[in-house]
């Protein structure tokens, strides 16, 4: 259970953004992910939380090399994925799959869902006959809770939840070891969110896949993940087992996030979140010096301005990057 199957080491992603100027002017670089390191254990779910724009999705895509990382390594089976060419990456893609946020736009509108689900087999199991591929696709559709006759329908005929089931079927058909779930339930209704979460957990129990579960919804992550990674402006703020993070968060940002989760208690007065985080995320084009969170941190001191806090171990499996972690 504690064997690391995927190792992310110092991963950084930067995008070049066109500057002002009429024809592009100079390019500026935006650091979306900055020196992120963690390991994913076999069969676990690692939740990644943070505000919109904090680099969660970039991190997920960089692990799969859908976005080229600017630095760092992603170690899978003793090989660094970052240095590989498209071609040598291809066979490894079988083990690493992704589920996207937007259920409809992540499915090719011109293919019926049977073809969509069977498609990965074309690449990763070319030895299968067409009939076997089709049978597997239909079995997979049934596995994710869709009826076999739906295989001939097109994505636009499905609801968001059903589309997401198709995406899951497409990812799972090649029997991956790791699935990056990039906000898989954010676009769905709450009741459907629960169904999809349960489906993912069932599949995980059956196949032992590891999930990197990206979400901005703390309650969803709390339900899904065993460990949680809190990101802010492309950096890891805190990485801790779920219960430890929720009962005793060390980083002021994690504390603020956890406090801001609405409590479903009608007796509680509205607007009663005195410690809610104020202000906006600073521009990632121009991040604050030192600790990136200091501009919104209630505990900010001069050392936070001058020095970025390193990610340090506090407790058994608890890492935090803060100069003044709450003990």
């Amino acid at each position: 259970m504690t064997t690391a199957i995927l190792e992310v080491d110092g991963l950084s992603v930067s995008y070049s953004i066109p500057g002002d100027g009429l024809l592009g002017g100079g390019m500026r670089s935006l650091q979306a992910v900055n020196d992120v390191s963690f390991s994913l254990q076999a069969g676990e779910t690692l939740g990644v939380v943070g505000e919109t724009g904090c680099g969660k999705s970039s991190l997920g895509k960089a692990i799969l090399q859908l976005v080229k990382p600017s630095a760092g390594r992603v170690i899978w089976n003793n090989r660094d994925l970052c240095g590989l060419t498209r071609k040598s990456l291809r066979p490894l893609r079988k083990d690493l799959q992704i589920i996207f946020q937007d259920p409809l736009s992540s499915l090719n509108p011109r293919l019926c869902v049977g073809e969509i689900v069977a498609e990965p087999l074309l690449i990763h199991a070319p030895e299968l006959s067409a009939r076997e591929r089709e049978q597997r696709a239909i079995a997979m559709l049934e596995r994710v809770g869709l009826r076999p006759e739906m295989a001939l329908r097109y994505p636009n005929e499905f609801s968001g939840g059903q589309c997401q089931r198709v995406s899951i079927a497409r990812a799972m058909i090649v029997e991956p070891k790791v699935v990056v779930c990039d906000e898989p339930v954010s676009a769905l209704d709450v009741s459907v969110q629960a169904q999809i979460c349960n489906l993912l957990r069932e599949l995980q129990r059956e196949t032992g896949i590891a999930l990197l579960f990206i979400s901005h919804d703390l309650s969803v992550v709390r339900y899904m993940a065993q460990r949680i990674l809190v990101m802010y402006l492309g950096r890891i703020m805190e990485l801790a087992p779920r219960d430890e993070l929720f009962t005793k968060p060390l980083h002021p940002y994690s504390q603020a996030l956890i406090r801001s989760v609405p409590v479903p208690d009608p007796a509680m007065p509205l607007n009663d979140y005195p410690d809610a985080l104020s202000g906006d995320l600073p521009s990632p084009l121009d991040p604050p010096s030192g600790c990136v969170f200091r501009t919104r941190c209630p505990k900010s001191t001069p050392i936070c301005v001058s020095q970025a806090p390193p990610l340090e171990r506090r407790g058994d499996r608890h890492l935090v990057a803060c100069h003044h972690p709450e003990e």
């Binding site: 990456l89 079988k94 799959q97 937007d102 090719n108 509108p109 690449i123 090649v174």
Partner: peptide, 15 residues
Amino acid sequence: NQEYVESAEAIGMTR
């Protein structure tokens, strides 16, 4: 820039 093109990349489809 559609996600479905990205999903094709993710399953290792050739260009």
